[in-house]
Nucleic acid binder design. Structure first.
Length: 821
RNA sequence: GCGAGAGUGGCGGAAUCGGCAGACGCGCCGGGUUUAGGACCCGGUGCCCGCAAGGGCGUGGGAGUUCGAGUCUCCCCUCUCGCACCA
């Protein structure tokens, strides 16, 4: 019956037809009244052909886009490439191919693969961030940030690989070593460009309530990354110099317990103060040692190393002079790079005090307890209880007194309540070739001058020497590129020779999709406001912090600039799991890489997509070894299923309406429509597919029994369309004889009355244990149910003459008879 | 250490509201078809006892709430992920 499933025969054919019919293009027709839906996938990095992670993510994203369209939406489902970045330069260095042709060749390859996989992208909006027409607007946006004071230059310590002669992003430093060559990374002070994301820290937290469907763990990661702490800034002074030094503390109520003071080893005041204190000779080797240890391994930095600077700090609350140290356990990046140390109530300070024989003074203790002898302490005390040894605050409850202490500090001019964030400004400059040049000119007389908008883009030279091994970056060492006239005064000046972090490029691509080819700005506000915010964003959890946080920041800046009418770009986010092999990530060195395109060639695009989607919940990892086995020639179960769908739908079409469709099949069809629709709403593609398999089995059984199944088959084919677009189209247009694409058809509707079962299985329990079942009508009443239960011989046997104390009846599902035991 | 999530057959997983645990699929077993292999079709398949009828056990472990717990509460164990001297 039916017909054979030969995907290689029709998949390429429908791919061509869909391109000709332009079925995947979003409609910009003003008369089109369908609600708009923006289905966005995180755009890929073109470092070769598509891998399994892409196959998984985009298969899910395509189900979202295709099902939204069938359910009546005007869908925007664009694609592009995050095309700047280090891998292109690595390839250039390794293979001697320039970054641009290498990148574009990979883009073309990935586009072919996407088309072959049946991804429903609107190709008219394709973009690549390395296109000059794109990065022109990246530069334009940078200049708007610059004008607003949100892009600025300052000297900062950065990661520098002495072997590769380049700065590295934090992500490229693995346990203190260069990701590429393994050399120990150095810290260097370089003048770098930053975006002032810290200005938006509070808003990034506050707007979380707009992120209505984000995975909880991503929200948590962002919250932790932003790291908001309430506390106080307190001004200490150095006795020997009189200079004021601020510290941040979350516990100003412990100020009376300060017994020493610690600077980060990277604090700029350390060398000067140690020279003054006459201890630089001992301090400097400690700092060198500490830096080396911190770089080599984070674990080694656990020791409470440190050195006395020979100077003293004055505690503003009681005038006490305490010794000042430099120690690696104080981070330069957090707070002010200096701390007041309260060893009685802080584990780290306590460990340091014990190591260096420093006094410990308890200032908070449990209410009513005897004074605590610091010498008997083996660990820091919990800091809740009653304040003691704290001058005017003795007897105050803590931590409830924090606000009171902070207010007192402010009145006394010794500090103030404040909020501190862990988030730091975004270092965006890179000394690399393959990125968008920073559109700034450095003029000896005018300073930092913006390149005028009408001179954009500042193009990359295509004759740069992008090899490594020199001290200067490729743009800096180019013989002519950087030499320009100052746009302000016309005098001799030089271009900024840094390029932008690729995360800048990817922070606004989603806006550009709305206005493809627009030449008067990065996008048209009306286009963006029409399509955005994004209806559903799909991509990897590896971007949980950087990309997602940066794009949220960009959106808020664009809002403040009046360029868009919303403050959150993607209220709904879905993360696919990883595709791993035998419990480990796939990698070349392990030789366990499975690629999607060979699967597509062997079994067809539909089977590849279904393997991904049926393997388990979308957000869970897929262990390929477990779902596919080790034999690549073994037919995937989903492929066999498609074979049965073809046989069944084909046979149902041949039989048509000549035989009646049994009501049980009709009911199952409606139930399946409801179930699959609900599953799509919660991204449970695996259970949606299993429901389609159940329907398939029932259609087959109906046909075997001589019944008709044409309506069921039609619904099945339509519901199959988002998951297996080629097979569905073949059956729809060829076997079912429909003239137009299944992907333009309307999602089947269900009759709520037919979703409810006519007959259900009622279970009879005795003392909560299943003893018997009966098929009953769905509208059975309680008395009838009880009567049935009491009449059951199995129930009677189980009751065994004991006294019945309670009868629980839940029509139409269950009766539970409780006996006295 | 802190934070988040998870633990169900041989395997991937299902159970959406506290009500038949194991849907669907893979694998395996038996049968059919086939020159053979593959493919396909039919049946079986949580574990234990039993020829069977039937019975017992069963969702990481332990307690609790409930007529009833994979699901809710508490404690413990294990695993995964993220952060990790954040003052």
């Amino acid at each position: 019956m039916g017909r054979r499933y030969e995907p290689s025969e029709f998949e390429p054919r429908w791919q061509r037809v869909w391109a000709d019919e332009r079925i995947d293009e979003a409609s910009e027709d003003p008369a089109d009244e369908r609600p708009r839906f923006y289905a966005l996938d995180m755009f890929p990095y073109p470092s070769g052909d598509l891998h399994m992670g892409h196959a998984e993510a985009f298969s899910g994203g395509d189900v979202v886009a295709r099902s939204a369209k069938m359910r009546g939406h005007n869908v925007l489902h664009p694609i592009g490439w995050d095309a700047f970045g280090l891998p292109a330069e690595n390839a250039a260095i390794k293979r001697g191919v320039a970054p641009a042709p290498w990148t574009y060749a990979n883009i073309d390859q990935q586009e072919r693969s996407f088309r072959r996989m049946g991804m429903s992208f609107d190709w008219t909006r394709r973009l690549a961030t390395c296109d000059p027409e794109y990065y022109r607007w990246t530069q334009w946006l940078f200049l708007r940030f610059f004008e607003k004071g949100l892009a600025y230059r300052k000297a900062a310590p950065v990661n520098w690989c002495p072997n590769d002669q380049t700065v590295l992003a934090n992500e490229q430093v693995i346990q203190g070593a260069c990701e590429r060559c393994g050399a120990v990374v150095e810290r260097r002070n370089l003048t770098q460009w930053f975006f002032k994301i810290t200005d938006y820290a509070q808003r990034l937290l506050d707007d979380e309530d707009q992120l209505i469907q984000w995975p909880e763990r991503v929200l948590t990661m962002q919250r932790n990354w932003i790291g908001r702490s309430e506390g106080a800034r307190v001004t200490f002074s150095i006795e020997e110099t009189g200079e004021e030094i601020e510290v941040f503390t979350t516990r100003p109520d412990t100020l009376w317990g300060v017994t020493f003071f610690v600077f980060s080893v990277d604090h700029p005041a350390v060398e000067r103060l140690a020279q003054l204190g006459g201890t630089w000779g001992e301090v400097e080797p400690m700092i060198q040692r500490a830096r080396a240890a911190a770089m080599a391994s984070r674990e080694e930095a656990d020791t409470k190393e440190g050195a006395f600077l020979g100077v003293h700090a004055v505690n503003p609350v009681n005038g006490e002079k305490v010794p000042v140290f430099a120690a690696p356990y104080v981070l330069m990046e957090y707070g002010t790079g200096a701390i007041m140390a309260v060893p009685a109530h802080d584990e780290r300070d306590f460990a340091f005090a014990r190591q260096h024989d420093l006094p410990v003074r308890v200032v908070i203790q449990p209410e009513g307890s005897e004074p605590i002898d610091p010498d008997s302490m083996t660990a820091a005390m919990p800091h809740d209880g009653v304040m003691v040894n704290s001058g005017p605050f003795d007897g105050e409850p803590s931590p409830a007194s924090i606000a009171k202490v902070a207010a007192w500090l402010q009145r006394e001019g010794r500090g103030e309540a404040t909020v501190n964030f862990r988030l730091r400004d975004w270092l965006l400059s890179r000394q690399r070739y393959w990125g968008a040049p920073i559109p700034i000119v450095h003029c000896p007389s005018c300073g930092e001058v913006a390149v005028p908008d009408d001179h954009l883009p500042v193009r990359l030279p295509d004759d740069a020497d992008f090899s490594l091994g020199d001290r200067e970056s490729p743009l800096a060492r180019h013989p002519t590129w950087k030499h320009v006239d100052c746009p302000a005064c016309g005098g001799e000046a030089t271009r900024d020779t840094d390029t932008m972090d690729t995360f800048v490029d990817s922070s606004w691509y989603l806006f550009r999709y709305c206005s493809p080819g627009y030449e008067d700005g990065p996008f048209r506000r009306e286009d963006v406001d029409r399509w955005m915010p994004v209806g559903q964003y799909t991509g990897g959890v590896e971007h949980a912090i950087l990309h997602l946080l940066y794009t949220r920041f960009f959106t808020k800046v664009l809002y403040d600039l009046g360029m868009v009418g919303f403050t959150e770009p993607f209220p709904r986010l879905m993360n696919q799991g990883q595709v791993i092999y035998d419990g480990a990530s796939m990698s070349k060195s392990k030789g366990n890489i499975v690629e999607p395109m060979p699967l597509v060639e062997r079994w067809g695009a539909d089977s590849m997509r279904l393997m991904m989607l049926f393997a388990g919940p979308f957000e869970d990892d897929i262990d390929w070894k477990l779902i596919a086995g080790e034999d690549p020639d073994r037919r995937p179960g989903v492929h066999s299923w498609l074979g049965r769908v073809f046989a069944a739908a084909g046979a149902a079409a041949e039989r048509g309406a000549s035989a009646p469709e049994p009501s049980s099949l009709v009911r199952l069809t409606h139930k399946t429509i409801k179930g699959v629709t609900d599953d799509l709403d919660r991204f449970r593609f695996n259970t949606a597919i299993s429901k389609l398999q159940v329907l398939t089995n029932e259609i087959r059984a109906t046909l075997d029994a001589g019944g008709g199944a044409i309506d069921a088959a039609r619904a099945l084919v339509q519901m199959l369309a988002p998951f297996a677009p080629f097979a569905a189209e073949e059956l729809w247009r060829v076997d079912l004889g429909e003239p137009a694409s299944v992907h333009r058809s309307s999602w089947p509707a269900y009759d709520p009355a037919l979703v409810l079962d006519e007959a259900v299985t009622m279970v009879f329990q005795v003392d909560g244990k299943l003893r018997d079942k009966a098929e009953v009508s769905a509208d059975i009443d309680e008395a009838g149910a009880l009567e049935l239960a009491r009449a059951s011989p199995k129930v009677l046997a189980a009751v065994d003459g004991r006294e019945i104390v309670q009868e629980i009846v839940r029509i139409p599902k269950l009766v539970n008879i409780v006996t006295k035991r």
